[in-house]
Design a protein around this nucleic acid. Structure first.
Length: 436
RNA sequence: GGAGAGAUGGCAGAGCGGUCUAAUGCGGCGGUCUUGAAAACCGUUGACCCAAAAGGUCCGGGGGUUCGAAUCCCUCUCUCUCCGCCA
């Protein structure tokens, strides 16, 4: 199994296990809200856990007597008692044989449990509504106003050709379909948006990072991409690296295996990166133009916070993204995702969609989530509380923002006879107000 | 890619087969003194499993030798130095 080397020395799953032990029925209810199919895993895991704990107690007892005897041997040898030494050695040899058997059992049982427990998704928060498909998501609020386009308005994939700013065909020649080649003002618009988003985020107290665009297996596991999304990431077998599907992955892993100072919380990070997604299984679905591509640019925000504050912070992040959309003068709506539509790692997620006028479609441009301790448990990101105990922090993240669909909407919604009229906030970044 | 050196607690750094339940220093925390602070002095201070006690685990990861491994051997990963290649 892929993750075995990394997992064996760890006890990450211990906190999840505690919840399972203490309240299995509640865990099952929660998983059902997330529309999770393998509820029976819960009972299997509890059974394995009980077995493991018995084996542990047994083997630790034996280990304790071996440790004691070994110390005794050292003392006897110093005293020069050869006979006593030999006798003790024999006794220890027998104990070791016993121990080896128990250890073998223990190892197998633990591996079995690990393989099962990493398949469990995060539990949804109690604020999450039941539901199976995107149709069950709830619109929290809408903002901005839909433009009135002339009858001859065209979708962004035609505008792109008209102004010669993105070349999909050549991108496909260079790499493959879904790898856009931005050109001229199209390329500059990308750069302007990235710069604007980063400035907007850092002004709100986020520290900017520029992370590696490939990660190792441990990092991909930490944020929950592995094992759940393995098939969605580009993988480099020669080095065992994954191309990042979002900068959330490298950036959240900055603090993996660390106990942060209480004063350092909240930790607020923003990062630009290209994002790479195989999008396996989504062929033919909303793939025209910039609607769905394999490589795209995104600016992300991540926070590591006190557990008690994470839901306030989630609202704060939603407001942050909402204001950003306001400044872009795009019509948007905010959805609260139902259990069935939430990601593996999330406890509560809000999606942002912008209205693409020429397509008459809502396009997702941001997803803001609270992961509670799901990621930090895997990554062991903790802080010392006032009693000196280590506690897991909560992690959250959101897009602020993903570019392609923003670009699609900017083009479609702002098309005019003289060209594309950009929102005022971008003029200085773009070095102009019109794409013509 | 080649050669060599290394990886120890928040940091620095000793230990190189048997009270290591890891020295020492710095940092942190508490206290004495002080109007307060600094300095000085005293004390304290790693993580993890187990409901807890008892106990156990952890000296980069994994494996081995041994009654006993931070210490010896193998292997992987990473870091540093030098050489090669190169933006």
């Amino acid at each position: 199994m892929l993750l075995k080397n990394y997992l064996c020395e760890n006890q990450y799953y211990m906190l999840q296990l505690q919840a399972l032990r203490q309240n299995p029925e509640w865990v099952k209810e929660r998983l059902a809200i997330k529309n999770f199919a393998q509820i029976n895993l819960v009972d299997e895991i509890i059974e394995l856990d009980a077995k493991i704990r018995n084996l542990k107690v047994e083997s630790e007892k034996i280990q304790a007597s071996i440790n004691g005897a070994s110390k005794g041997i050292g003392i006897l040898m110093k005293e020069g008692d050869k006979e006593g030494t030999e006798k003790m050695k024999k006794a220890v040899a027998d104990l070791k044989e016993n121990l080896a058997g128990l250890r073998g059992d223990l190892f197998l049982t633990e591996s079995e449990l690990e393989e099962k427990i990493i398949l469990l998704p995060n539990l949804p928060s109690d604020k999450v509504l039941a539901g199976k498909t995107p149709a069950d998501n709830v619109v929290v609020r809408e903002g901005g106003s839909k433009p009135k386009l002339p009858a001859d308005a065209i979708p962004h994939w035609d505008l792109i050709k008209k102004y010669d700013i993105v070349d999909f065909e050549t991108g496909a020649k260079i790499t493959g379909s879904g790898f856009p080649l931005y050109k001229g003002k199209g390329a500059k618009l990308q750069r302007a948006l990235i710069q604007y988003f980063l400035d907007y985020n850092t002004a709100a107290g986020y520290t900017e990072y520029l992370p590696p665009f490939m990660v190792n297996e441990a990092s991909a596991y930490g944020t929950g991409q592995l094992p759940d999304k393995e098939g969605q990431m580009y993988y480099m077998p020669a080095d065992n690296f994954y191309m990042i599907p979002t900068s959330e992955v490298p950036v959240t892993n900055i603090y993996r295996d660390e106990i942060v100072k209480e004063n350092d919380l909240p930790i607020k990070i923003t990062a630009y990166s290209p994002c790479f997604r195989r999008e396996a299984g989504s062929f033919g679905k909303d793939v025209r133009g910039l609607n769905r591509v394999h490589q795209f640019d995104k600016v992300e925000i991540v926070q590591l916070v006190y557990p008690e504050k994470s839901y306030d912070v989630l609202e704060e992040m939603v407001n942050h993204v909402e204001k950003l959309l306001h400044t872009l003068e795009l019509p948007y709506r905010i959805l609260k995702l139902c259990g069935g539509d939430m990601s593996f790692a999330s406890a509560l997620t809000y999606d942002f969609e912008v209205y693409s006028a020429a397509q008459d479609k809502w396009l997702e441009v941001s997803s803001v989530s609270n992961f509670e301790t799901f990621q930090t448990n895997r990554m062991k990101i903790r802080f010392k509380d006032s009693n000196g105990k280590s506690q897991l922090v909560h992690s959250l993240n959101g897009s602020s923002l993903a570019l392609p669909r923003i670009v699609a909407c900017l083009l479609e919604n702002n098309q005019a006879p003289d060209g594309i009229i950009l929102p005022a906030v971008l003029h200085s970044y773009f070095g102009g107000s019109v794409i013509s």
